[in-house]
């Protein structure tokens, strides 16, 4: 009985852990973007947009749960 009740709690905690991790990665990527813009290396435009795509992907997958769309289709 207690095992059944504890399982969702563990999933929930790991979900929040992933959320915190995603937030940290988003923050680090934003700082990297800013540093690239300041240092102006060659190929700055491509670098910054690759990072932006990475950030958008993180939000779409972990915060917006885009994968739920095709997971539902599988059932």
């Amino acid at each position: 009985m207690s095992d059944v009740q504890e399982a969702p709690e563990t999933t929930e905690t790991s979900g929040m852990g992933i959320g915190t991790m995603v937030l940290l990665v988003l923050g680090v990527l934003t700082v990297i973007e800013y540093l690239i813009a300041v240092s102006k290396p060659p190929g700055q435009l491509a670098l910054i947009f690759v990072i932006a795509i990475g950030k958008a992907w993180l939000i779409l997958v972990y915060f917006m749960h885009v994968k739920q769309l095709w997971k539902k289709e599988a059932h």
């Binding site: 934003t30 973007e33 800013y34 690239i36 813009a37 102006k40 700055q44 435009l45 910054i48 947009f49 990072i51 932006a52 950030k55 958008a56 939000i59 779409l60 915060f63 917006m64």
Partner: peptide, 22 residues
């Protein structure tokens, strides 16, 4: 909340386009 995240995704592209790229 999904809509809010979407607004965030849009800003992820607008921020470099308006502030960073030069």
């Amino acid at each position: 909340v999904k809509y809010w995240h979407f607004v965030d995704v849009v800003w992820v592209f607008f921020y470099p386009a308006l502030y960073l790229i030069s």
